[in-house]
Simulated assay, not measured.
Amino acid sequence: MEKYNELKTLIASIEDDAVKFYEKGNNAAGTRVRTGLQKVKALAQDIRNAVTAAKNKQ
């Protein structure tokens, strides 16, 4: 559950930069959004693997 909460926190942290990019056209914020989303992707994959391992262990 710790990793899931980390994922939620990471997504929330990207929100400000997403607003800056989409509403204000700040390209640097867009780069930060892309970087953050790459981290989300990796963390989501880690969670997915942990869930699969736990499911198969039962």
Rank of each mutant, 00 (worst) to 15 (best):
T9H: 06
N27S: 12
K41M: 13
K8V: 12
K41A: 08
I11W: 01
A42W: 11
A42Q: 15
S13W: 04
G30E: 06
A28K: 13
A44S: 14
V19L: 06
A28R: 03
A12W: 06
G25P: 00
K39Q: 15
D17G: 05
K20R: 05
A18T: 10
V33C: 06
R34C: 03
R32Q: 12
R32V: 00
F21I: 06
K20W: 07
K57C: 02
R32G: 05
K55P: 00
K39D: 14
D17E: 02
E2T: 00
V40H: 02
T35G: 10
I47Q: 01
K24W: 09
I47S: 03
K8Y: 08
Q45E: 13
V19A: 07
E23K: 09
I47F: 04
K8D: 13
D16N: 06
E2S: 12
G36H: 01
L10T: 06
T35S: 15
D17S: 02
T35M: 15
D16F: 05
N56Y: 04
L43K: 05
E15I: 13
S13T: 08
Q45G: 05
T31V: 14
A29Y: 03
D16S: 08
R32W: 09
K57F: 03
N49T: 10
Y4W: 11
R32N: 07
A53F: 03
I11K: 12
A50V: 01
A53P: 04
G30H: 04
N56E: 10
K57S: 04
S13A: 12
V19Y: 04
T31E: 15
G30Q: 03
A29V: 05
A28P: 03
K39H: 13
E6K: 07
T52E: 14
I11Q: 09
V19S: 08
L7V: 07
R32P: 03
N5I: 13
G36F: 01
N27E: 15
V51L: 13
K39G: 09
L7E: 02
V51S: 00
Q45L: 07
A50L: 06
V33I: 09
A50P: 01
F21E: 07
L37W: 06
D17R: 00
N5C: 05
A54V: 10
K3I: 04
V51C: 10
G25S: 01
N56D: 12
R32Y: 02
G36E: 02
N27F: 12
D46P: 07
V19I: 12
M1P: 10
L37P: 05
T31R: 14
V19M: 00
N26G: 02
T35Q: 15
A42N: 14
A44Q: 06
G30N: 00
V40R: 05
N27Q: 15
K3S: 11
V19F: 08
G30P: 01
K24E: 14
I14L: 09
N27T: 13
N49G: 04
A18G: 11
S13P: 08
K24G: 03
V19R: 08
L7T: 02
I14K: 01
E23C: 06
A12N: 13
V19N: 05
A44I: 09
D17T: 09
L7P: 01
S13E: 08
V51N: 11
L10R: 04
K20G: 00
